[in-house]
Every structure is written in C-alpha cells, then in structure tokens.
Design a protein around this nucleic acid. Structure first.
Lengths: 356, 356
DNA sequence: GCCAGTTAGTGACGCGAGTTAGCTAAGCAC
DNA sequence: GTGCTTAGCTAACTCGCGTCACTAACTGGC
C-alpha cells in the first residue's frame, strides 16, 4: 500500500541519528557540520526506505510552496487556438524545474477571487499571468499586496514586470518587408480587438513602417480580427470588397490562414495578386500554401524568461520592469514584388535572391 | 505586506470562538452542531479579514493535496506541435476545478524518479499520464504502489484505466469514406512510429476498412510519419514516387498539411489527382486548402473525462479500465470521387449531396 | 589542568490547519 | 432535585518537516 510512506523519523531511526541530522543532510546544508560517515549512513537509509519528503509538510515548515502558477486569462476559444501555448508552457516548465519548482496551471478561473486565492492560500509562490486585462481589479489588488507576479504580454496601466515579444518592432519589420518589395497599398488585419495591447502594438508597428516610408496611413485598410481563423477570413473578405491594396499584414498566422482562404475564394492568387505576411510563426506556417512569410516569436524563450524573472522576483532580486524579446522575420513565399503582379508567378526565394 | 496573512486563529479571535469552531464552520461539517448565530459571526469575521486557509497546512492535516498532476510524456517537439493540447488541458482543468482540485503540469521530467516523486511526496493525489510508453518501468512501479492514475492514450501492457479516442473506429471511418467515394488504391501515412499505440491502432482501422471492402492490404502503401508536418511531407513525397494510389489517409492533420505540400510540389491537385483524409480536426484544418476532410477528436472531452475518471479513482470509486471516446468524420473538400479524376474539379459538398 | 575553540550532533518548538474526545449548560422526564 | 440527553463549543493532539539554541566531546595551546 502506498498509504503509509516512510517519514524522516523512519530514516533517522534506521540511520541511528536524529531527525534533525536527517533534515540537514537531505537539504544539503553546509552551515551545519556533518561527518561524512553519518552523512553516508543517512543517505543510505533514505534510499533504502525510498524516502520522499512530504511536500505539504515541508512547504508548511518553510513557508514556501516551491510552486509557481500560470494563469491563462483568456477565453477558452482563444486558448484553444493558441498554437504556441505548448511551447511557452514548456519553457516555463523548464525554468521552474531548474530551480526545483513546479508549475500549476489555472485556466481562467471564473471564480471571483481567482488568483488571490492561489496566492493567499500559499499554494503558489508567484504567478505568471498570461494575457492580462488592463482593467483587472483582482490583479491590481494582488500586485498591491506585493506578491511576485510576472505578466506575459503587456498591460501599460499595470505596475508589474512583464515579458513580451517586441510587437512593435516585429510588426514594423513585417510591413517594411512588404514596402521593400514595392508594395505601397498595404492593409492590416489585427490579431485581436484593439483593446488588447498586443493588437494595438502591432498596429503601431504597422503605422510606424508606413510613416518611415512616407506612406499615408489609411484607416480603411485596417480590419479587426479576433484570435481564430474564421475572423481572418471575414476580415479579409471585407477588405477585398474595397480592393485597393496589394499586400496585407495579418498580425497572426492563424488568422492569416483564414485570410488566405478568403483571397482564394475571391479567385485571387498569393503572392501574385496579393502578398501576405503573418505573425507568430506557428509550427504549421511553413506548410501553408504558399509557405507563409511571417514574424517569428520565440515562444519557448518567452515562457522560460517569464519563469526566470518570476523566480528572481521570488528570491527577492530586482527585476526589470519590462523585458522585450526579439522577433525574427522568416521570409518564405507569401510575398511577391509589386512589380511581379503583371508577370507570371515565380518563387519568392528566387525573387529574394534577385534583391539584396 | 503580503507577508503575514491572517490565520484561522485570527478569525477565531475576531469571532470570539475557538479555532475548532472556525474549522467546522468553514469546512461546512454538519456532523457537528453549530448555532446559526456563531456560524454567521465566523463567516463574517472570516471575510472581514479576507481569510484564506493556508493550503500546505490543510494538505498536511488532511493528507490530501487536492491537486492532480498532468505528465506530458513526450518529446518537446511533439508537445510543441500538439495543436490539441490546450483544449485537453482546459478540459482537465475544468474537471479538476469542479471538484476543488488544481492541476500541476509536469512536462517530461527527465529526472529518473519523475512521477514517483510527485506522488510519493504527496504533492499530487493522482496523475494523468499522457502518451505513456509501454516500457515505462517507473510507471509500472507507481501503478503497483496503488496510486490513482489515468492514462491518456492506451498502453495495452499497462494495467491502468485509460481514456482514449477510438482510433480504430475513427481511422476505419476515414478510410471507408474514401472507399465509398470510389477509391481502391489508398495509401496511409501514420501519425507516429508504429511503436506508438495510437499509430498502430489507426493503421488497424485502415486495414479493417480495406478488409471489409475486400481490398487487399499492400504494405508498400504504408508510410511512417512522426508528429511534425515535415514528416508528412517526406512520407508523401516517398509515396508519390510509387504513384499507384488515388487517395491517402494521413493519420494526423499536422502531417496532412505537410503531405498536401508534397502533393502540390509534385504538380498534383487535391482532391482531383489525390484525395486526402486527415485525423484530429485541429482548429486550422477547416482552413487548409482545400479544407481538410478529417476525423474529429473531442479534445476537450478527452481532458475532462480523464480528469473525472481520476477524481473518481481518488475518491475510491470503481473506474472502467478502458474508456473510448467517439470520433466524428468531418467531411470537407479534400476528398473527391475516384470517377471525378477525369472530370473538372467540383466541390466535395456537391458531390456529397449527390450521394446518399 | 584550564579555558577557548572547534566539530558533531540533538531537543524542542513552530508552521497552520484538521480532528477526536470531552466538557458545560440547558432541557426534559420522573 | 436527580439523572440523562443533547446542543454547542473547546482543549489538545496530530500531520511531517525546518530550524534555532544548545550540549557533549574532542582538540590544542600554554
């Protein structure tokens, strides 16, 4: 039966020492002198019994749970279509494990008191909050209480360390790429409603690129998407009715796939009739038809960095208020030169080698 | 400061009762008589102080952690391309939350002693093991110890309750669909090496469908894939060299997208020259070009069911040894009639309405 | 032979809850 | 008024571990 596991007392008895000694040995404290001989006896006894310290007991005694929480503050449908989530979770997990921590996942607690409960009950020592809402009263309170928290994604009104991808720079790079290829009428489909900072930041990057190139910003070329592929389809369909652009920056690969469907449904070709750049570089993006040129997000690093920052904060170390990770433009085949529109299609990589 | 939270003693003092009474009230024990008046006083004091019971302490006292663990027993690259994972986690989370439990995620602990530690340290009350390996000694030991465990995915040699999708029936439905549309030379690309039960089961379903239709099984039409899109591309490319089939069952949508790329790269059209059926119905499948006909997996239900079974097991209730969830064939546009190969393309749904 | 200084180790308390056994006062029968 | 029940509550123990303060033994210097 697994019902009664050995305790440190059992180990002590078997090794013929006190429980205190066992604790010292097992926690590797070097401020307390232990002779190698007894050390070995304890270790031996411990493994002979298959001893595993009781976690709740040690958590209670130390006053720390060695656990960090990941709060997914999104709608279920958003989470479901978040193709990068597994990678992020893995990065977080690795960071945690490296420090002897574990990860508790709380997906959108509908209960009022959601996180507070986690924190106040000392179930977790700190929290990563993904997709924070700017108007989150709950979150603000927890922050005021001084709990270690790291935001994944940015919330300008919230005074907490955050880790995010450089949305502005990424979007700017994407749009600049289109401009370099000769496009001037460039539309944008946002990844989410503009109340989401990632969406508004990517829009900012878009405007910045235009501005730098001296292209005027035209609000009619902006369409709002929302997380899922379908919204990309709808947005693109709406945009196509105006039909006065040669390229679109779709600020999410998932939506980009939907958008590509809309392009085809209108009998147009990519990249001949319309060029597309995505954002995220989800694992499947390279296999879209055509392979999607997109802005790559370091999803694993995002999780790992967030985890490390949180751990540092828990240790009481100072932590930068805002950490931005770099994106990388992955040039594939969904972008053509504006000049190429009259000509027969050719592979983007050929076009790429002609430039530069 | 968050450093000193109120304890039950504080609540007791404020309410003018003993700590014991507080405990009784807060845990809603009706075997102990408490007058409504003191009950209210306690409740009031508790919320006035914003009291949250200390989780480790109560875990220690009860001997239960109210936490279940999710072990991801896969390679990082597999996890990353598991597009259904978020949904599964969400289902699991909902099941857990409903019973006052939390979910701890442990992604592939490379440490020997991986799960045992979790269980033996009483950090979790039970485990969901996703993608179990049949030869997992560790797992077998934990099972022998009598710990509550539910396998997600099947491992015939392991004596533990499992939850899985009906891979055989799903695959059979997919292939039968191709057969109904007139195809007789049907290839298969597996979702994983055949040592994985899900892969071999889907292959079984394929063979079953062929057998039922009196079509002979041809091993040369079987290609092995492995989790990621690239492997689908490679497998399809290899298959195309033999070029003696009109349809392919790709046992994973992710690989199917890669496979579709290979088809196009060979100058062939889908579904005119080759029909494709996938498996999984990932959120993006409906937006492939053409929209992918595929076998839909109830990912959310998978997580939720696994969670509920585990909780039942923890409560000591009897649990079925094997639970299979139904799949559903989603007919979209990647399958054409064999007869249609000579004719101009037509939409699959039109073709569908002609039949039946 | 005495004190100081180390080395090796232990006893006992505390963490914050759950829980059992028992106590007190009130109510009731007779 | 005594005995018995019951409602209402509490004292005290328990869970298993971390840790501080303290002791015992063993150097070594002079």
């Amino acid at each position: 039966m697994a019902r009664s596991r050995p305790t440190s007392t059992d180990v002590a008895r078997l090794a013929g020492v006190s429980r205190t000694t066992v604790s010292f040995v097992l926690n590797g404290r070097n401020d307390m002198a232990i002779s190698p001989a007894t050390r070995d006896r304890v270790l031996e006894a411990s493994s002979a019994l298959g001893y595993q310290p009781n976690a709740p007991a040690s958590q209670l005694a130390r006053g720390a749970s060695l656990t960090i929480g990941l709060v997914l503050r999104q709608e279920p449908s958003q989470v479901a279509s978040d193709a990068l989530l597994p990678q992020t979770v893995q990065g977080l997990g690795d960071a945690a494990r490296g420090a002897g921590y574990q990860v508790l996942v709380e997906s959108l607690p509908p209960v009022p008191g959601g996180y507070r409960q986690l924190l106040h009950s000392r179930r977790v020592d700190g929290l990563i909050v993904s997709g924070p809402l700017a108007d989150d009263v709950e979150l603000r309170r927890v922050l005021d209480d001084g709990f270690p928290i790291v935001l994944q994604g940015h919330a300008p009104t919230l005074n907490a360390p955050s880790v995010d991808v450089d949305n502005v720079a990424g979007a700017k790079a994407a749009v600049s790429h289109l401009i370099e290829r000769g496009h001037t009428r460039i539309a944008i489909i946002t990844n989410a409603p503009l109340t989401y900072t990632s969406a508004s930041e990517r829009l900012d990057g878009y405007r910045l690129a235009l501005q730098e190139a001296g292209i005027e910003y035209d609000p009619r070329l902006v369409a709002e998407g929302a997380f899922v592929a379908q919204s990309g389809f709808v947005a693109m369909a709406a945009l196509l009715e105006k039909r006065s652009f040669t390229a679109v920056f779709v600020a999410s690969d998932v939506l980009a796939l939907g958008a590509m469907g809309a392009v085809r449904a209108n009998g147009l070709r990519i990249p001949i009739d319309v060029s597309i750049v995505g954002f995220d570089d989800i694992p499947l993006a390279a296999y879209f038809d055509p392979p999607l040129t997109t802005v790559s997000i370091p999803a694993y690093a995002l999780g790992k960095t967030a985890g490390n920052l949180l751990l540092a904060q828990i240790r009481g170390e100072p932590v930068p208020q805002r950490t931005l990770l770099d994106t990388e433009l992955k040039v594939r085949e969904s972008v053509g030169t504006e000049a190429g529109r009259q000509q027969p299609p050719r592979r983007a990589d050929k076009a790429a080698s002609e430039r530069s």
